[in-house]
Computed example of a mutant assay.
Amino acid sequence: MNHRSAAFTVAYALMRVAADHADHWGQRDFDAQCKGATDEAPVEYKHEDGTTVTVGTDGGRRACARHVVNYTATQGLVLVAGTRALGIRLHPAAVAAALAVSGLTHYAADRRVPDGLLQRLAKATGKERFYKLSDFGMNGPYCLDQSWHHSWETLAAAVASIKARTA
């Protein structure tokens, strides 16, 4: 296996595990609940202390941006630490580009405004019924969201492995 193949494999595994953690365990409840809020479709969020806040477009954008910054930072930390520990040196510009791909595409999907990107893609590709599925233990929007993220993380891992070398 050449250096780039190994770097790609490692980068993908590290980015995927970091993303899974950041998207689920690491995401703040407020951000998860409010990141798709708009003025036309506001979100009522009840804090643990019992206070309630109404979140509109600006708050939804901030919640999504905060989630994506944490998500991307988690991926970056895990990617850099993991590859260093394994003796793989990634080019800093390639890492930055990979994290930009992952973060920007994550924001685009997670903003989830009514008739958002994933819903429009599902409709355009004949997957609208699957997108609306929420039965039999399935949730179509979540499955398509995760598939979107995995696909872009694959590209991001390929970008990260450009000019990789062993220590």
Rank of each mutant, 00 (worst) to 15 (best):
D115A: 13
T74S: 14
T166E: 08
G140I: 02
A18N: 04
V78N: 05
R16H: 15
L104F: 11
R66V: 11
R84L: 15
H67R: 09
V159G: 00
A93N: 10
L77E: 09
S5W: 10
T72C: 14
K132F: 11
Y131E: 04
A156H: 07
Y131Q: 04
A109P: 02
A100L: 10
Q27H: 06
G126S: 08
L99Y: 01
A81H: 07
A22V: 03
D29G: 02
D135P: 00
E128A: 13
M1G: 12
T54C: 04
R16W: 12
A156Q: 09
A81V: 15
M138A: 12
A158F: 12
T166N: 06
E40M: 08
S5H: 13
W25T: 09
V55N: 07
K127L: 15
A19D: 10
P92M: 13
C64G: 00
F30G: 11
A32P: 00
Y45T: 12
V53G: 04
A93R: 08
C143E: 12
E40A: 15
A122K: 08
T54Q: 15
L104N: 00
A85F: 15
P141M: 04
N139R: 11
H106L: 03
A65K: 07
H91G: 00
R89C: 04
E40V: 02
E44R: 15
A158H: 02
A94N: 06
W152M: 10
G82P: 05
A98N: 02
A41R: 14
G36W: 06
E128V: 12
L121I: 03
